[in-house]
Simulated assay, not measured.
Amino acid sequence: MSVVTKLVNGQPAETINLADRGLQFGDGVFRTIKVMNGEPIWWARHYAKLARDCAQIGIVAPSEATLLADIEQLKPNNHTLKIMVTRGETARGYVAPADLPPNRIVQIAPLPAYSPDLATQGVTLRTSSTRASWQPALAGIKHLNRLENILARREWSDPGIFDGLMFDRDDHLIEGVMSNVLVLIDGVLCTPDLSESGVAGVCRDMTLLAAARLGIPTAVCQIRREQLSTATALWVCNSLAGLLPVVALDDWRWPVSALQRDLRTTLFAMKDE
């Protein structure tokens, strides 16, 4: 008996209708969640973010109970869980009926093979030449059209580079290709303002809460490229890799500090809050 790893609208499947708008236009949203010992990490926040993203582009989100039933059917243990919600199926053309039933795709896959040394020895980044576009209507949403990130990721093949940093047209730091960014400047843990561009990740939110628990001041603000030269620490984070210290970005270098270790330890001791 084959193991079920993919569901479409609650049914085992390996294909989707070619009329699906997620396939045609990237018309949908998604979440990527780490599952450890059968528990989706930070589930409540991921579901709330999925529901908000759906609402922002006018898609009816599946209920939490529906998605939990899908997850139970897949029985993930230590896996990557990916949930996609598309607007549904239409003929070609951008117009879609308001009452179009959405499609949901829930699937599991092995966790990425990140070395545990990354958490203690840090990661190396590069600057991406691909710019993050300005679009307030989509800012913060994890939508299915990730072409900017794909183009940015094509810029390097060196396995020693963990991620690339993306800036907007005005040279403000936005995010990593696959991560959010946090920067310690003058004792304040800063993360880029994503009200006009980028994806607001759950691990970013949780890291800000962990910093507050440690008494570290935090700020969501614009960060210009040149300000990185004055930073005393950098981190990148996402829901699969967690929070990782940055030791190199292009020609800049930073040591791994006790603060970076403490922040990661505090973050991973936290449940949904």
Score class of each variant (00 low, 15 high):
residue 204 R to N: 01
residue 115 S to Y: 10
residue 162 F to E: 06
residue 140 G to D: 13
residue 176 G to A: 08
residue 155 E to A: 12
residue 179 S to Q: 01
residue 188 V to C: 11
residue 141 I to M: 00
residue 142 K to M: 01
residue 138 L to S: 10
residue 190 C to I: 04
residue 163 D to W: 02
residue 161 I to G: 09
residue 133 S to T: 07
residue 123 V to T: 09
residue 182 L to M: 13
residue 194 L to D: 08
residue 175 E to W: 08
residue 148 E to T: 14
residue 200 A to K: 02
residue 116 P to V: 00
residue 155 E to Y: 09
residue 177 V to L: 14
residue 173 L to N: 12
residue 171 D to C: 12
residue 116 P to T: 12
residue 202 V to S: 12
residue 179 S to M: 08
residue 123 V to W: 06
residue 143 H to E: 00
residue 174 I to P: 01
residue 135 Q to F: 01
residue 167 F to E: 10
residue 199 V to A: 05
residue 174 I to T: 03
residue 161 I to F: 07
residue 177 V to K: 14
residue 172 H to A: 09
residue 155 E to D: 06
residue 115 S to P: 02
residue 192 P to A: 09
residue 155 E to Q: 15
residue 175 E to R: 01
residue 171 D to W: 15
residue 183 V to Q: 01
residue 197 S to Q: 05
residue 138 L to D: 00
residue 136 P to V: 13
residue 156 W to P: 03
residue 196 E to H: 15
residue 144 L to V: 09
residue 136 P to I: 15
residue 137 A to N: 11
residue 177 V to T: 15
residue 166 M to C: 10
residue 129 S to Q: 14
residue 193 D to W: 04
residue 155 E to I: 07
residue 184 L to E: 15
residue 171 D to L: 14
residue 184 L to N: 10
residue 120 T to N: 12
residue 134 W to A: 03
residue 167 F to Y: 12
residue 198 G to P: 06
residue 152 A to D: 12
residue 115 S to T: 14
residue 141 I to C: 03
residue 187 G to C: 04
residue 206 M to I: 11
residue 126 R to E: 04
residue 173 L to D: 01
residue 147 L to K: 04
residue 136 P to E: 14
residue 197 S to G: 04
residue 165 L to Y: 02
residue 153 R to S: 14
residue 160 G to R: 06
residue 186 D to F: 09
residue 172 H to E: 05
residue 181 V to C: 07
residue 155 E to K: 04
residue 124 T to C: 11
residue 161 I to M: 13
residue 194 L to Y: 07
residue 177 V to H: 03
residue 128 S to W: 00
residue 162 F to K: 04
residue 136 P to M: 13
residue 161 I to W: 06
residue 139 A to H: 06
residue 193 D to M: 10
residue 177 V to E: 03
residue 190 C to S: 11
residue 153 R to G: 06
residue 182 L to R: 05
residue 144 L to K: 08
residue 138 L to G: 06
residue 132 A to L: 00
residue 123 V to S: 07
residue 171 D to P: 08
residue 152 A to K: 07
residue 126 R to I: 15
residue 128 S to M: 13
residue 162 F to H: 15
residue 159 P to W: 09
residue 116 P to L: 04
residue 193 D to Q: 11
residue 133 S to Q: 02
residue 204 R to I: 01
residue 180 N to Y: 02
residue 170 D to Q: 15
residue 152 A to L: 13
residue 181 V to K: 07
residue 134 W to G: 00
residue 121 Q to D: 12
residue 168 D to L: 06
residue 190 C to E: 05
residue 174 I to D: 01
residue 116 P to W: 03
residue 191 T to E: 00
residue 201 G to N: 05
residue 119 A to I: 07
residue 189 L to M: 14
residue 198 G to C: 08
residue 151 L to D: 04
residue 116 P to D: 10
residue 130 T to A: 10
residue 118 L to Q: 05
residue 116 P to M: 01
residue 182 L to C: 06
residue 126 R to T: 13
residue 168 D to F: 03
residue 120 T to A: 02
residue 123 V to L: 09
residue 143 H to N: 12
residue 193 D to N: 13
residue 185 I to P: 00
residue 159 P to G: 00
residue 179 S to N: 02
residue 185 I to L: 15
residue 122 G to D: 06
residue 178 M to Y: 03
